[in-house]
Design a protein around this nucleic acid. Structure first.
Lengths: 131, 131
DNA sequence: CTAATCCTTCCAGTCACTGGAAGGTCAAGG
DNA sequence: CCTTGACCTTCCAGTGACTGGAAGGATTAG
C-alpha cells in the first residue's frame, strides 16, 4: 500500500510517517514509480510507534522499544527498564506541575480581578514579598 | 551595567537575555562601544520574566504580563484572566500525565522484568488486547 | 483530455533556548 | 607597548517532533 493508506491504517499523518523514515525509524520499500510501499508489518510497527508516543515515550525511546519489539530474543527486563525510567520522569513532571498549580491557584484566589491595578499576581512576579 | 552583570542579577543567562531582546521583550540601551547597557528597571523586568517563566507562562504570555506590569493603569482582571487560562492548561496537563502514569504503572507492575521475552508492555504497544 | 487526487522532495517555521565560531573591546600585568 | 584573558558583539546551526506549503511527477475518473 501507499503512504496514504498506511497513514489511515496506522492513525499517523503521512507527514509524520515520512519524518519517521527520515530519522531512520522505519524504512519502507519503494514501488517502481518511486512511491513508498508499506506492508502490513510496516503498518503494525507504525501503530506500535503511535501507541508508544501516546504513552509519552520520546522518539529515541520509541526507537529502543521498537528494536525490542522486533527482537524475539529480548529480555522483558530491558523493556521494563525503559518504562520505569519514563515513569520516573512522569512522576517528576506531575510533581512540578502540582507545585505550580498550588502557587498559581493561591495567587488567582488572592486576586480580586476587578478594574483596579492592585494585583497579587503581578506583585509576586515583581518579587514583592511584602504582603 | 553590561549584560554579564544583568545576567547575574536577574539569574538569566546572557544568551537568554539576548534572545529576549531579539524577540522584542526587552530593548536595553547601548553604550558607546556597542555593548548592551542595562539599568535597574531592566533588571527588574528580567527578574519579572524569569519568575513568570518559572510559573509556567509562555514567552507570549510573559509579554502580556510584562505589559500589564508596566501599565500602572491595568485592571487586575486582565492579569487574573491570563493566570486562570494558564491554570486550566496546567490542570489538563496534570490530568493527562496522571492517566499516563496509571497506565504505565499498571504495565510496569505486570511485567516480570526477567530474561524472558514475554512482556505485557510490548504487548500493549503492539495492540494485543488479549490478556 | 483534463481535472482531481495522490505522491515526491525540499525548505521553512514552531518554541525557547543553547552552543559555537569569528571577531571587537577593555583592564591588568610584564 | 604588548599580550593575555575576560568580556562583549553578531551570525549560524541544532534541539524535538512535527507541521505547512511550494513545486512538480504519477495515477485515476469522467
Amino acid at each position: 500500500m501507499n503512504i496514504g493508506e498506511a497513514a489511515e491504517l496506522s492513525g499517523l499523518p503521512s507527514k509524520t510517517i515520512r519524518y519517521y523514515e527520515e530519522i531512520g525509524l522505519l524504512k519502507p520499500d519503494r514501488s517502481e514509480n518511486g512511491y513508498r510501499f508499506y506492508c502490513l508489518t510496516d503498518v503494525e510497527r507504525l501503530q506500535f510507534l503511535q501507541r508508544a508516543r501516546n504513552l509519552g515515550f520520546s522518539l529515541d525511546e520509541c526507537r529502543q522499544l521498537l528494536a525490542l519489539y522486533k527482537d524475539q530474543g529480548r529480555a522483558s527486563h530491558d523493556v521494563k527498564e525503559v518504562a520505569i525510567a519514563k515513569l520516573g520522569e512522569i512522576d517528576q513532571k506531575i510533581e512540578a506541575l502540582m507545585l505550580l498549580r498550588t502557587t498559581l491557584r493561591d495567587l488567582v484566589g488572592k486576586c480580586k480581578g476587578d478594574f483596579h491595578p492592585e494585583c497579587p499576581i503581578i506583585e509576586q512576579l515583581a518579587g514583592k514579598d511584602d504582603f
